[in-house]
C-alpha cells in the first residue's frame, strides 16, 4: 500500500517537476510547482514527518508560491515575454543536467544496500519532539535565523520602496 502511494507521489512529483520547467507559461509553472510541493508533502507524511508536512504546505504552498504567483500576476508575465533559447543551448543544458543526474546516480549506486537502522520512532516528526530539538540543540541557529529574516526584510524594503527624487 505505502509502496504504491510512494510510487504515485514520486511519479506526480517528477512529472509536475518536469512540467514546471517545460511549461511556457509561468503561471502554469507555478501551479505545477505547487502540485509538486503537495506531492512532496505527501512524502513527508509517508516518512512520519507530520509536522513538516503541514509546514511544507503552509510555507511553500501557502506563502512562497503565493508570492510567486503574486509577482507573476503583478508583472503580468505572459508566455510571449520569454524568447526562445537556441536549440543548442537547450541541448547543452539538457546534456549537462542529464550528465549530472547520471553521475550522481552512478556515484550513489552503492547506497542501495544501505541497511535499515535499528529502531524507528514514529513520533519523531511530531511537533513536540521537533520543538525539543529545535529549542535545545538548535537554539543558536534558530535565533540566527531571525537575523536572516531581519536582513531579508531590510533588503526587500530597501529594494521595494520607491525613491523620492
Amino acid at each position: 500500500m505505502t509502496m504504491y502511494l510512494f510510487y504515485f507521489l514520486a511519479f506526480l512529483a517528477i512529472l509536475c517537476g518536469l512540467m514546471v520547467i517545460l511549461e511556457k507559461n509561468p503561471v502554469h509553472s507555478v501551479l505545477y510547482l505547487i502540485i509538486t510541493f503537495f506531492a512532496l508533502a505527501g512524502h513527508y507524511l509517508l516518512l512520519n514527518a507530520q509536522f513538516l508536512f503541514i509546514v511544507q504546505i503552509m510555507v511553500y504552498a501557502g506563502a512562497i508560491m503565493v508570492l510567486f504567483l503574486f509577482v507573476i500576476m503583478l508583472l503580468n508575465l505572459n508566455k510571449e515575454t520569454e524568447p526562445h533559447k537556441s536549440n543548442l543551448v537547450k541541448f547543452a543544458a539538457a546534456i549537462s543536467a542529464g550528465l549530472l543526474l547520471v553521475v550522481l546516480v552512478a556515484a550513489m549506486k552503492g547506497a542501495e544496500t544501505l541497511p535499515a537502522p535499528a529502531t524507528t520512532n514514529a513520533d519523531m516528526g511530531l511537533v513536540k519532539n521537533l520543538g525539543q530539538v529545535l529549542f535545545t540543540q538548535f537554539l543558536l541557529p534558530f535565533e540566527t535565523a531571525s537575523l536572516l529574516f531581519l536582513a531579508a526584510m531590510v533588503g526587500a524594503v530597501m529594494l521595494g520602496k520607491r525613491d523620492i527624487k
Binding site: 541557529p141 537575523l147 536572516l148 531579508a152 531590510v154 533588503g155 526587500a156
Partner: peptide
C-alpha cells in the same frame, strides 16, 4: 546548519546591496 545560515546571512544582504543602485 550554521555554515548554511552563515552563508545565507552573508549572501542575502549582498544580493540586495548589489542592486542598491536601483
Amino acid at each position: 546548519v550554521m555554515l548554511f545560515l552563515g552563508i545565507e546571512i552573508l549572501s542575502i544582504p549582498m544580493y540586495v546591496l548589489a542592486g542598491s543602485r536601483k
